[in-house]
Amino acid sequence: MKKVNGAIVVNAERCKGCGLCVNACRLGLITMTKKTVNHKGYPYAEQQDWEKCNACRACAIVCPDGCITVYKSETSVD
């Protein structure tokens, strides 16, 4: 059997905190920072529980500013 490993990396300094990726992730894995902001003064997106990410790319596709890189790798599990 194959297991999909996925994870995202957000370019925090490019992020504008619009929250569209939070809305797009069906697994609810993305949250916005509450107490920290980037150099522009915006809260930014962060992925929680990367182990649950299936690399579907929805968050990255809807990010208007191209801030999200998606990684995917398949490993076999017996």
Binding site: A7, W50, I61, G66, V70, Y71
Partner: peptide, 10 residues
Amino acid sequence: LISPENIVYE
């Protein structure tokens, strides 16, 4: 996982 060969969107 976070390695250039695994990038599927950027």
